[in-house]
């Protein structure tokens, strides 16, 4: 556990020290502010139904922006490090390969959570300020943000798996985007498989909003997401463990 803890500290340092990830966090903040202003001054005409600002920001994040940032971070922490040889700085230290993989994955998740925290704070404050969000709805919105973390996990593992098959960071990003789009389109084109695809649950937080929570559906989705995560993790680990540098 100590090795994983140290790994998380190191990998997070690497992510948060890079200018592009700092800028991305600022952009997320600006985007949340911008959406709030658009929502207020256009009365919801320009954007889609901005009746509840923090939740609409969350939908945009989980469907598009967070997958993109995951693909970028995975490419930087895996494919790019393998490409430029900096992975040797970790492999030769007292940490096992499984611990390296887990600590990198958790660091990416921490970065994604920081995006969610920024959006939640800005979205909620602006929503309340412009009178589009009730203060009493904040706990429910908070739960929506928290549960949105779960569907992100299989996406990270899928991207790690793809990065192990890629020779460069750019091909890792491109392949991840391509596969993500293919999975997304298959869900749209073939409705019957949609419920089996993990991507379909990016906005599953909607199940937690309202008077009654469909507990059975929630448990099925949790099982599905865990299953996908385990399959992608196993594949990624098998390839990462075998890799020679």
């Amino acid at each position: 556990m100590t090795a994983i803890r140290i790994g998380i500290i190191n990998e997070s340092t690497k992510l948060f020290k890079r200018s592009k990830y700092k800028i991305f966090l600022i952009c997320i903040g600006i985007l949340s502010l911008g959406l709030g202003l658009i929502s207020n001054y256009t009365g919801g005409l320009v954007n889609v139904s901005l009746s509840n600002l923090p939740l609409n920001i969350l939908s945009i994040l989980t469907t598009v922006l967070i997958p993109l940032v995951i693909f970028m971070a995975v490419a930087d922490l895996f494919a790019a490090e393998q490409e430029n040889g900096t992975i040797k700085a970790i492999i030769t230290r007292p940490i096992s390969r499984s611990e390296i993989l887990i600590s990198k994955m958790i660091s990416i998740l921490i970065y994604v959570i920081s995006i969610l925290i920024i959006s939640f704070i800005i979205g909620s404050v602006m929503g309340i300020f412009f009178g589009r969000t009730e203060v009493m709805d904040i706990p429910e919105i908070f739960i929506a943000y928290v549960v949105s973390i779960l569907p992100i996990i299989p996406t990270i593992f899928l991207s790690i798996l793809i990065s192990q098959l890629s020779k460069s960071s750019s091909s890792s990003v491109m392949l991840s985007v391509l596969i993500y789009i293919i999975i997304m389109l298959s869900g749209i084109i073939f409705h019957q498989v949609s419920s089996m695809l993990f991507i379909s649950y990016a906005n599953w937080y909607k199940l937690f909003i309202g008077a009654q929570m469909p507990l059975k559906s929630i448990l099925v989705i949790v099982g599905l997401l865990i299953g996908y995560s385990l399959v992608f993790f196993s594949g990624a680990y098998a390839l990462f463990e075998r890799k020679e540098y």
Binding site: I6, K14, R18, T86, A89
Partner: peptide, 18 residues
């Protein structure tokens, strides 16, 4: 194996953490 976007001290700190 050094991270070019970090300083020399930060590179050593990351290694020393282990």
């Amino acid at each position: 194996a050094i991270y070019e976007y970090l300083t020399a001290r930060e590179n050593l700190k990351l290694a020393a953490n282990y």
